[in-house]
């Protein structure tokens, strides 16, 4: 918007210079005036806020994620899930000019729970009072970062209570589960054995928080009267077959606090997200 307006003025300048030098003084005045008009426009955008909806859409490869449906993975293993939850925090939006907006910390942690999905399998997160602007990138953390965790209760509002209600807090210690996948798996030798991926950081001893940065395929236009929807697809298959392919038979059917297996899952988790499309109203 800003760039277009500026080039428009430059072309005016160019044409008018061709006509006559006498107009230069007038032109400068005009430029000054139009510049200040310009500023007014930018200011009105800066003062303006709007909402932004982030939609999380869990899938498995090219299929929708449906509870209790069997999905194949690598090495002839398969799995069925009954719960899929993860924590997304520190959502930050980047404008086309590189400036960023970090959503306020106290509101900036969300539990994305497949059980809360609408019939289309989408879980909505609404960000309120986002500065109006044209955003091209969204980044967020998966889990809870150490800085936030080390504050204890401070600045966390009711997050701990909500996390506990969603069974995203360890019961035997104080820490968050960053992702929780529960279900069963089968392979050539076992059928419907327990599958529980409860990965998080372990106190301050093991940091499994990871950051994700996603480019938007088209600009996310936030205005007071325009609420864009950012549709993020999350490929749960990549939790097991991502950067590293893991085998349930090798112990990845039970991932809790182990310092070898949990970082592998955390790294894989980082790669499950992509922005599929953006709806602008």
């Amino acid at each position: 918007m800003e760039v277009r307006t500026t080039s428009y003025h430059l072309s005016i300048i160019f044409i008018q210079m061709k006509i006559t030098k006498i107009f230069i003084t007038l032109l400068l005045c005009a430029t000054v005036i139009s510049c200040s008009n310009d500023d007014n426009m930018v200011e009105s955008l800066v003062g303006q806020t709007g909402d932004l909806i982030v939609k999380f859409d869990n899938g498995v490869g090219d299929q929708d994620l449906i509870f209790d449906v069997s999905y194949d993975k690598s090495s002839n293993e398969s799995y069925k899930l009954t719960s899929v939850k993860y924590i997304v925090s520190n959502i930050e939006l980047t404008k086309s000019d590189g400036s960023t907006f970090m959503y306020p910390e106290i509101e900036n942690a969300f539990i994305v729970d497949e059980a809360d999905a609408n019939n289309a399998g989408e879980i909505y997160i609404t960000l309120n009072d986002v500065p109006a602007g044209d955003y091209t990138k969204i980044s967020f953390g998966v889990g809870i970062d150490q800085e936030r965790f080390q504050k204890g209760a401070d600045g966390q509002g009711n997050l701990l209570a909500e996390a506990q209600e969603k069974e995203m807090l360890w019961s035997w210690a104080t820490g968050f589960r960053f992702i929780r996948l529960d279900g069963v798996y089968s392979d050539a030798t076992v059928t419907d054995e327990a599958l529980n991926i409860h990965m998080g950081s372990v106190g301050t001893s093991l940091d499994n928080y990871r950051e994700v940065s996603l480019d938007a395929p088209n600009t996310v236009i936030v205005r007071e009267a325009s609420t864009p929807e950012v549709h993020i697809k999350a490929d749960i298959a990549k939790v097991f077959d991502g950067q590293t392919s893991v085998l349930f038979a090798d112990g990845y059917n039970q991932v809790h606090t182990d310092e070898t297996t949990t970082p592998v899952i955390a790294d894989n988790l980082m790669g499950i997200f992509m922005i599929h499309h953006v709806h602008n109203e």
């Binding site: 080390q150 204890g152 360890w170 035997w172 104080t174 820490g175 106190g203 301050t204 001893s205």
Partner: peptide, 9 residues
């Protein structure tokens, strides 16, 4: 040492 912050204990 399962709690690493007094608030969380």
């Amino acid at each position: 040492g399962a709690a690493s912050h007094l608030d969380l204990q």
